[in-house]
């Protein structure tokens, strides 16, 4: 029989090794991409258009495409998602219907993005005739990130203490005033986290973009133009063997963008939390 204290030691070591592997892989990926990518990244790479399908030149149109597409997605998804979560948590009682809606959003969250892509292609690109466009892509990505925004906002709204609502109403505030002036400000850090997670997911998204926004390598000038995002550019450069250096360069910018967004989210959350609690 082995002593419990022995198992204690063994378990601790196993957990440590697990953690170390996780951290190592994370850093290895980042290091590997940066090592291969940083060499081609400079101002020129960021601000010029690609030449020869991306073999030379920069990725400026892809940066623009990424920003615009994410922006459209988030502008559509935020009011819908936050609105739904307000409705679910403030205007409905727990019932069969609300649990069905919740179950539905959870299922939606688990659907692979390529299926969303196909759905968006059939509905927006073909049926509604929007073609491969920023609008088609933005709408489809909005549907993909909607569950995330709904769930995080709902959790945030639920965690607002009930007595805030009670005081506001007892002072003669209406329900809507109570939601706007008391509930939402207190829930803001959580809601913002959800939105930023949504932004990060739309920046990373590849499958949906290929299906619905296309991959035209030009700076888009309207919502009905096709565009190419950094993720898609990376995929095409690597997959078709056009230029591994520029693929790594694109990946580098992508990773830096995501890191910056996370850092910004972190900073914003702390600021908001300091302000409202």
């Amino acid at each position: 029989m082995l002593k419990p204290i022995f198992w204690e030691q063994v378990m601790k070591k196993i957990l440590f090794v697990g953690t170390a592997i996780t951290v190592f892989i994370l850093f290895f990926i980042i290091f590997y991409i940066l090592k291969n990518g940083l060499a081609v990244v400079d101002m020129e790479f960021l601000l010029s258009s690609p030449k020869d399908f991306g073999r030379a030149g920069g990725i400026f149109p892809c940066i623009v495409g990424t920003i615009v597409l994410s922006l459209v997605a988030i502008i559509i998804a935020t009011p819908l998602g936050v609105g739904t979560s307000i409705y679910l948590s403030e205007y409905t009682r727990e019932s069969k219907l609300t649990s069905i809606i919740r179950f539905g959003t959870d299922c939606l969250a688990g659907i692979p993005s390529i299926i969303f892509g196909l759905f968006g292609f059939v509905l927006f690109v073909v049926y509604l005739g929007l073609g491969w466009s920023i609008l088609s892509g933005g709408l489809t990505i909005a549907f993909m990130i909607l569950p995330t925004i709904i769930r995080t906002s709902e959790e945030a709204i639920k965690s607002v203490p009930d007595y805030y609502r009670e005081v506001s109403l007892s002072l003669g505030g209406t329900k809507w005033q109570t939601i706007v002036k008391v509930v939402l400000p207190s829930a803001l850090p959580g809601i913002v986290t959800g939105i930023i997670l949504g932004v990060a997911r739309s920046i990373e998204e590849t499958a949906i973009v290929i299906f619905t926004a296309g991959s035209v390598l030009r700076i888009p000038t309207s919502l009905f133009d096709s565009c190419r995002t950094m993720s898609v550019h990376f995929y095409i450069l690597a997959r078709e063997g056009i230029s591994m250096e520029n693929a790594y360069g694109t990946a580098t910018i992508l990773i830096i963008t995501i890191l910056l967004i996370n850092a910004f989210a972190y900073w914003l959350m702390h600021r908001l939390m300091a302000k409202y609690s």
Partner: peptide, 17 residues
């Protein structure tokens, strides 16, 4: 009515404002 008859509760419950 709620304006006319205001309430003060058991625990101080200021808003986080």
């Amino acid at each position: 009515l709620r304006k006319k008859a205001g309430m003060v509760f058991q625990r101080p419950n200021c808003f986080p404002l």
